[in-house]
């Protein structure tokens, strides 16, 4: 929730011209990705990003349930983003979906409706199960990055790896990869997902107050950051799947 900066509880987000974390304005938190940590799903991944820890499991293509939702022309994408009750830094959360998680699940579904070659396997569904095990600002973009790697792990045909990052305005400056305090107390928050290959955005949401110039700067910063995310995703996949002696990518 971006907004009101007159609140006495608001922490400082910048000090001496730098972010409190010491990161540069275009610098990501450390990110690591485990590919295929699970045995049961067709594909899986865990993204550790700052203190975020998000698990993605892919099931499918499989039969649609309930059956009447089946689309004869394309596969359905179903995304279920959920925050575990113990995932927050504060109080115990309620288990199960809430209004926020339902909206986040919907926009993540739209990302992969675009990205997965859904016309290649009609009458099926691809289910993306996204579990936020620990949150630190940027859980939906972590979930998208995990889901995209898990889809590759599952061998499901996609147009490109999807690389997501949040951008925002914190104490007057546009910065990438907002942490929890910057997300909570900054002036604006804008989660973005890109196909780096084409430069198109597959996720765009924005709250807070920005000028059109800041919006433009934010998208540019986001695209550059998404390239770095993509390199980490590719590297994780290559480490698991590269054949020794053959060049990857």
């Amino acid at each position: 929730m971006a907004g009101n900066n007159n609140n006495p509880n608001k922490p400082k987000l910048r000090d001496g011209g730098r972010r409190i974390s010491g990161r540069g304005d275009d610098e990501l938190r450390p990110m690591s990705i485990e590919v295929g940590p699970m045995v049961r799903p067709e594909g899986s991944a865990i993204v550790n990003w700052g203190r975020n820890k998000v698990l993605a499991a892919v099931y499918g293509p499989r039969e649609v349930f309930p059956k009447h939702l089946t689309d004869p022309h394309k596969a359905l994408i179903n995304a279920r983003y959920i925050m575990a009750p113990f995932s927050g830094q504060e109080e115990h959360g309620r288990a199960g979906p809430n209004r926020r998680s339902i909206e986040v699940s919907k926009v993540i579904k739209h990302v992969f409706e675009n990205n997965v070659l859904v016309h290649s396997f009609p009458k099926t569904t691809v289910d993306l199960m996204l579990e936020v095990l620990q949150s630190d600002g940027g859980t939906r973009v972590s979930a998208i990055n995990a889901a995209s790697v898990a889809l590759v792990d599952a061998g499901i045909p996609i147009r490109d790896i999807v690389s997501a990052v949040s951008v925002g305005k914190a104490d007057g400056k546009m910065v990438v990869d907002l942490d929890k305090d910057e997300d909570n107390w900054g002036e604006s928050d804008m989660p973005l997902a890109f196909s780096v290959r084409t430069g198109e955005m597959l996720l765009f949401q924005m709250d807070g107050m920005l000028t059109i110039e800041e919006l433009s700067t934010g998208i540019d910063l986001g695209f550059e950051a998404a390239k770095k995310v993509r390199a980490i995703q590719t590297d994780a996949l290559v480490r698991k799947y590269a054949i020794p002696g053959e060049s990857a990518q």
Binding site: M190, D207, T211
Partner: peptide
């Protein structure tokens, strides 16, 4: 100011 954005679909 731009104060809300949502891409859907």
């Amino acid at each position: 100011f731009v104060c809300a954005g949502q891409k859907s679909g």
